[in-house]
Design a protein around this nucleic acid. Structure first.
Length: 559
RNA sequence: UGGGGUGUCGCCAAGUGGUAAGGCAUCGGAUUUUGAUUCCGACAUUCGUAGGUUCGAUCCCUACCACCCCAGCCA
């Protein structure tokens, strides 16, 4: 089994344990707050496993809250897909799905409260002017001329903003904090903008929308979130988070004061996790869809054959810290493979067929063996591996003149047919162009279910009956990008690095037991790798068999 | 030249004043009708660098270096 490392003591768990021990909280509540502007990817999977995992492990709750404050980019397809992904990973959110937009009325009232307490003002500066007034990283900003408007005037103006009296972008509501703060986030951040855009939940009710920094912390507090975990880039938003929450909490308007804790986001080499760029791959048809098996999306990984347990194992192994969490794809693949190892049946399939005629095969006399679907798990059942006179083996398993160390079939050499006899290659039949067309081999009749006497046959190869095997479409995947960091190569667009060989479709011949396959059934094709029946295209009843290669087997043959 | 972070084995990652967990990878070896799996064993005298405090420092102090984030009416 996978030696599940104990949920590594990470620094956030240490904080949670301490809060529980000291009685600061009797129960923790975390939250996962995706913006529905794209599909969830492997980086979200890490964050999601952390937030939901924390709740699971400490008997707490985890809310699912869509951060739907920017109607221009958000849509319902994403809302649905995200929920599917989370359920698929096996997590359950607390109560109903929540939306930041559930709090739009509250948020509006609080904005008025900030205004009435002289902590917010309506600003008429244009976006360009605002940028100028903000100053730079090294120079202080300066106050907007509108900063000194009276509370009454601001109250009136903001009300009219809401009522649609002003054009989009004509005014914004800003918090009155400190224009010379070294922290840019505190230089009077805008918290409301005018934007006439149809919202997936609230329709056309609003023409002003609250912004992230203002919305997120208040939403957390309204839900009594105890630990609000996010990625590192929000570290210097924390003073703002605390500023907003403290003001409202002190005034008795909020039930809790959540704590924001930041950890590093996941970086997977040879892939991208920018939602904008993933969107581009889909919209430009560079991949088939968001769930293309080559996509690093949760939906893509699912279609590729990754399992929830495998993804969760991966996330756990990545850990939670504040140092850059850069990992290689094999690290992900190992977790997937490891989890599949003991949970899926094995069958034989030949991807690049080479025909063999068994010269001394006698129908009705030459025997066949029944074999378990998993060597360590007899409970998976068994099936007959029926030998026929003509079989296919994989082209890679034969070398006329073997290279050093090759222990498969050679001319004049012997090899074990898995679950069947030892055979010996007597003759190589070639085409006019010199390529091999078929092999003539003889069976050693004394080797069915037992080792030959007096000699050792080391090699074991897989095979299928040429006449009884089932042809199926197999989709072989390789990494989508050919460089480690496609996102970040100076002077180049990430699309230049798309691997032209990331998808290879071919035909495989699979043993007949495969006929009972159902979509999303996982298998190990022995000696080849793990495959999954495509969840949409595989339909055995209609005679259409389609398998996606999930991940190859480890290959320790050192050439 | 501002602010916020991070630097522990090839990659993740614990630890934190008492002499470096674990996982992945790698390398040996055993078992094996999958060159898979499984199993055993090896794998940082050293914690970005340089000083300092201390009986003792990866952990405290000082300086330095490298890298990441921040100037959206995005999240």
């Amino acid at each position: 089994m996978n030696n599940d490392t104990p949920a590594a003591g990470n620094f956030i768990r240490a904080i949670v344990e301490d809060d529980l021990k000291t009685g600061k909280h009797s129960q923790i509540i975390t939250r996962f707050p995706p913006e529905p502007n794209g599909y969830l990817h492997v980086g979200h999977a890490k964050a999601l496993c952390h937030n939901f995992g924390l709740a699971e492990d400490y008997n707490g709750l985890c809310n699912l809250r869509f951060d739907d404050t920017n109607p221009e980019k958000e849509n319902d397809e994403f809302v649905q897909a995200i929920q599917d992904n989370i359920r698929w990973l096996g997590f359950t959110w607390n109560g109903e799905v929540k939306y930041a937009s559930d709090y739009f009325d509250k948020l509006y009232e609080f904005a008025l409260w900030f205004i009435d307490n002289d902590l917010a003002y309506v600003d008429d500066l244009t976006p360009e002017q605002m940028r100028e007034y903000r100053g730079t990283l090294t120079t202080s900003g300066k106050d907007s001329p509108y900063r000194t408007r009276s509370a009454a005037e601001n109250h009136d103006l903001f009300t009219r903003m809401k009522d649609g009296e002003f054009a989009d972008s004509a005014k914004v509501l800003r918090l009155k904090i400190n224009m010379s703060s070294p922290n840019m986030n505190l230089r009077d951040p805008a918290i409301y903008r005018i934007k006439r855009s149809h919202h997936i939940r609230t329709g056309d009710k609003w023409c002003i929308y609250p912004m992230y920094d203002y919305t997120h912390c208040i939403s957390d507090a309204l839900e009594s979130i105890t630990h609000s975990c996010c990625s590192l880039e929000f570290e210097d938003h924390r003073p703002l988070y605390d500023w907003v929450v403290d003001k409202l909490f002190t005034a008795g308007l909020l039930p809790a004061r959540p704590r924001q804790i930041e950890f590093s986001r996941l970086v997977l080499n040879y892939t991208i996790t920018s939602k904008r760029k993933l969107t581009q791959l889909v919209s430009e048809g560079l991949v088939s869809a968001w769930d293309d098996p080559r996509m690093p999306t949760i939906a893509g990984m699912r279609r590729r054959g990754y399992t929830p347990q495998g993804v969760r194992l991966f996330a756990k192994r990545c850990g939670i810290s504040k140092s850059p969490n850069v990992v290689d794809i094999p690290f992900l693949e190992t977790a997937i493979r490891e989890e599949l190892e003991n949970s899926v049946p094995r069958v034989m399939a030949v991807l690049k067929p080479l025909k063999i005629i068994l010269t001394n095969f006698v129908a009705g006399e030459t025997g066949s063996r029944s074999a378990d679907f998993h060597p360590q798990h007899p409970e998976f059942g068994s099936r007959l591996c029926e030998l026929t006179q003509e079989i296919y083996i994989d082209q890679d398993d034969f070398q006329e003149t073997p290279e050093k160390g090759f222990q498969r079939l050679t001319l004049g050499g012997e090899v074990r047919l898995r679950h069947s006899y030892v055979i010996k290659c007597e003759e190589v039949i070639k085409n006019a162009d010199g390529s091999i067309s078929e092999l003539r081999c003889s069976i050693d009749p004394l080797t069915l279910g037992k080792n030959p006497e007096g000699r050792k046959v080391k090699g074991v190869i897989h095979w299928v009956s040429a006449t009884k095997s089932i042809a199926a479409e197999v989709r072989l995947y390789d990494r989508l990008f050919s460089v480690e960091n496609p996102d970040n190569v100076e002077g180049h667009d990430f699309k230049e690095f798309i691997n032209p060989h990331s998808l290879d479709i071919s035909t495989a011949y699979i043993e007949p037991s495969i006929l009972s396959v159902k979509p999303e059934d996982h298998f190990q094709f022995e000696r080849v790798g793990y495959f999954v029946a495509d969840r949409y295209d595989c339909d055995a009843a209609k005679g259409k068999l389609v398998f996606n290669k999930t991940v190859g087997l480890k290959d320790n043959w050192k050439k």
